[in-house]
Nucleic acid binder design. Structure first.
Length: 481
RNA sequence: GGCCCGUUGGUCAAGCGGUUAAGACUCCGCCCUUUCACGGCGGCAUCACGAGUUCGAUUCUCGUACGGGUCACCA
């Protein structure tokens, strides 16, 4: 049978990293076996609905590369894919259950329910519905229905025995039936509850693998009882553990960079974020860690998903992001880096050349602006920068190095890395000093910074002859007693 | 509180009765090197606890502790 999975978010805002991972896993499971990945919007809750959230979902999934084969915008043979457009179909299913004895009408008002709950809680019994309306006679039901008394339809749970199901990750789980509440299927307003709509949609859309968060683990028996009541085949369940902020708190939107979008705007690459969250709670057979989305499809194995929750570690994301950056070819990196370079550098420089220097020392794109902020104008710097133990430099020999560098550079006809470099090395040799004694002062003079992308030679090339010479003169002035 | 689930270094994790308990990130050394990085090499550091089963438990069973989830006319 062809695998069909779905991602069914509610349009309530940005996509949380945890949800994103659930979507990813659902996508991977489908694609792994050449199956179908479906996007369904669960928008039955008007109060939580946020304008534009559906577009955010589209944009985010698209950016992440999780292309859906069926969905609201692309259609499909099981359309519509927006729950609010499917409203008419749920109630008949519930009525079918009433007729087959698996559900019943309930006319209890809010007050009575609260009373029951209160009593139960006080006596330490689980606050479930007491089944009051289950014993109503057909005549009583008809009378109330005809009289227009508001009602809900509740699922009739078995009173004894237990329900067992198998989760692909957690294995066999058994729950006593008497712990299952007669949950509401159809609300007073005629709308289905999430749990009910979910089952109906998953079945009518032919979903074979239900991939969802761990929070549904304990309500899965209720779902299965519903499938059984209808006589439908049950899907396979894959419950994913949560992603945590720390040992005791799960990742929340308040966390700042908890949403996928936040991470992207914080300078992380989509492929790197996808790569990292795939690794949170799942590990490949090999020791490889860096994967593109396509490579993940190849490598993914749902049976290797971990049962325990995982803590989100921004350090590791940074490292993985750095790996992805280094994997790109320079021109691709240049495309990504350019907007960040322009934040602090408007000089007319050779982008490709700068990008090449930046690439090995960039972990997130946001590292870039600070790295190139010396290009437009030489920052104020302390001459203490010229002192470096390992390079054997101090203010005195730095001054003399700069003084000897200056005429050499001024005399150069060619201005490229090779020419400058060989001339500097030759100069060091001629003076009988370590290369560092020449190159360190040069780098400080042209950058005014302790850390820079590339060395003095590269920076000189980048800045051009005129600017380089100007900065060396400034350095000499600063060092002069 | 009831029920369900989980627990290998600081973090992600491999492991499926006998291992020197992989690997990655972080941190620390060293090498490379015109800084910082990158790259290479090496190091620190882990089986929550207590019983049992077994010749032998990280691995199986049962408790305990800790943590999470769930108990709505929310999704």
């Amino acid at each position: 049978m062809k695998v069909r999975t779905r991602f069914a978010p509610s349009p309530t805002g940005y996509i949380h990293v945890g949800n994103m991972r659930t979507a990813l896993y659902a996508y991977l499971i489908a694609k792994k076996s050449g199956g179908t990945f479906i996007l369904r919007i669960e928008d039955t809750d008007r109060e939580r609905y946020i304008e534009g959230a559906v577009d955010v979902i589209y944009a985010t999934l698209r950016k992440a590369g999780l292309a859906w084969d069926e969905g609201p915008d692309v259609g499909g043979q099981y359309a519509p894919y927006v729950q609010s457009e499917r409203m008419a179909m749920y109630k008949p299913y519930a009525q079918e259950l009433v007729e087959s004895g698996h559900a019943y009408y309930c006319f209890c008002g809010k007050e009575r329910l609260e009373e029951v709950r209160g009593v139960r809680q006080a006596s330490g019994v689980p606050p479930m519905y007491d089944g009051f309306c289950k014993s109503l006679t057909d005549a009583e039901i008809k009378e109330k229905l005809d009289g227009g008394v508001p009602y809900v339809i509740r699922q009739k749970m078995p009173k004894d025995g237990s329900t067992t199901f198998t989760d692909e990750i957690f294995g066999q789980i058994t729950v006593e039936n008497n712990l299952l509440d007669d949950q509401i299927l159809i609300k007073t307003d005629g709308m289905p509850t999430y749990n009910f709509a979910n089952v109906i949609d998953d079945h009518t859309m032919g979903i074979t693998h239900v991939v969802r968060g761990n929070e549904y683990l304990s309500s899965t028996p209720k779902y299965n009882l519903l499938y059984d009541a209808f006589g439908w085949d049950k899907p396979k369940y894959i419950h994913c553990s949560l992603i945590m902020k720390n040992a005791t708190e799960k990742l929340s939107k308040r966390d700042g960079d908890a949403t996928f979008e936040d991470l992207i705007s914080a300078g992380y690459l989509t492929e790197a974020v996808i790569n990292y969250i795939a690794l949170l709670g799942w590990s490949p057979k090999s020791e490889r860690e860096i994967f593109s989305l396509d490579e993940l499809i190849e490598e993914f194995d749902p049976s290797a998903i971990s049962k325990s929750p995982a803590i989100f570690d921004i350090q590791k994301l940074r490292a993985i992001n750095g790996e992805h950056i280094r994997r790109m070819d320079v021109s691709e990196f240049k495309e990504h880096a350019a907007p960040y370079i322009k934040k602090t550098c408007s000089s007319d420089i050779v982008m490709e050349f700068l990008a090449g220097m930046l690439q090995p020392r960039t972990e997130t794109l946001q590292d870039i602006p600070e790295q190139v902020d010396f290009i437009d104008s030489l920052p104020e710097y302390d001459t203490a920068l010229y002192e470096h133990k390992k390079m054997k430099t101090n203010k005195e020999n730095s001054l003399s190095s700069l003084s000897s560098i200056l005429p050499v550079l001024e005399s150069l006809e060619q201005w490229d890395s090779h020419t400058i470099h060989s001339n500097m090395i030759a100069l060091a040799e001629k003076q009988g000093v370590k290369n560092g004694v020449i190159l360190w002062p040069l780098r400080v003079a042209v950058s005014g910074k302790q850390f820079t992308p590339g060395g003095g030679v590269e920076i000189s090339v980048l800045l051009g002859k005129q600017e380089t010479i100007k900065r060396i003169k400034i350095g000499m002035e600063k060092l002069s007693p």
